[in-house]
Design a protein around this nucleic acid. Sequence first.
RNA 1: GGCAGGGUGGCCAAGUGGUAAGGCGGAGGUCUGCAAAACCUCCAUCGCGGGUUCGAUUCCCGCCCCUGCCUCCA
Length: 462
Amino acid sequence: MSLHIYNTLTRSKQRFEPLVAGRVGMYVCGVTVYDHCHVGHARVMVAFDVIYRWLMQLGFDVSYVRNFTDVDDKIIRRANELNVDCKALTDEMISAFYTDMDALNCLRPTSEPRATEHMPEMIGMIEKLVDKGLAYVADNGDVAYAVRKFDGYGKLSGKKIDELESGSRVDVDEAKRDPLDFVLWKQAKPDEPAWDSPWGKGRPGWHIECSAMSCTQLGATFDIHGGGMDLKFPHHENEIAQSEGANGKPFAKVWVHNGFVNINQEKMSKSLGNFFTVCEVLKKFQPEVLRMFILGTHYRSPLDFSDQALETARHGLDRLYETKRRLASLCEEKGVRSEEHAYALRFANAMNDDFNTPEALAVLFDLARSINRALDQGEDVSGIAGDFGTLNGLLGITQQDAENWFQSDDDLDVALIESLIAERNEARKQRDFGRADAVREQLAQMNVILEDGPHGTSWKLK
RNA sequence: GGCAGGGUGGCCAAGUGGUAAGGCGGAGGUCUGCAAAACCUCCAUCGCGGGUUCGAUUCCCGCCCCUGCCUCCA
């Protein structure tokens, strides 16, 4: 089957056809860099990383753009709290962001624009909106978007302006002509970062940056726009209003939104304070475990976070690594090649069906079993072994050396372990199983599990 | 209140108009000195009630429950 993607705009799965044959433009809303990212952010990054990888696998030349919001109320507030300037804060957080993303094995997008580096584009777009009568300068000097002037407002989130208004709990800003209007440009306040503009010194509103940067880098109309579910409204709705209003052309063709990460069935979020940062999680689990955990659920479904769920993901990964380890010892001898692609085909069908990673993982597990079975029976696995590595790579898992995966720990005395194993094997040779078991028990105390195989004894950490 | 998305085995999680992938976990077995790993076998009728259909978990209607968005939020 060909690639089908669920489009929030049409609320249906549709066959994906790029605007320009062979090329895909994809914009994903990144993070506001005022704090470390948490598991919810990690999910977006991993979800779109997999999408990016799969699009490339399909042969598309992908322009993947993901922004950094580096000017914003929260950044200003946090910088003030820490008594540093905004730039220092955002630089630090961007660097931390990269540390996390690299650990999670997320490929770098082709472009990562920062809001502060695109002031002229934003200002230009706001000017266009003002010229067209879609935006106005309010009494307090802010520039606001007149939502009711834009016809399609609400088409993405399925909201109707009047219903929004009745349910609105927004504090009514007196300067706005309509409570739903949103700010494009804010007048500068003392001691805040500010830029010159036709409306005086100020800074952009949140939504305009994504419109300006996506259109600048990908054109007025592009293929895919993504982000977390919570950005659907108002952020993405406003982006549409801005971009289509200014350009007079359709904005993104396909809208992709990933589901939340929950804790105890409740959304993980900064405001609820129930979040875990990526680096916290990585203190307890290897990065691939987090990635595996995320891939185990379809990107649009809610994902419940818990240590137990991570533990389960780790065990699943162990299983794949066991197969990788067996193949690794094999490859050293004669190498493997791939001839038969039944599994690769199943995998492709899964991924083409709206990036169904749980299904794709199931294929991987089936493939692992098939390889193990063949290996157990001494059969040739050269026909399918190559695919195992390839498919794992497409999901970005099982990328470490297998031996290392099972044995990695910071303070591990490998020499001691190996001498104990030698000691035990000597005992086994003497058929002194009491002593052999005692040594094994001693190793078990160190969390070391032994596996006696035809080619000797291997070990791993519990 | 409006809108959106869900309720599948002990847990997690896919999926399909013709009696349900995969992972974790559990039970038994093969292998092993014993283990471990691997392999084999087994462990669900899909929230409730109707309807359409030869046949529904999958389509329709009603109900119950959960979550999210409607405010900054991935």
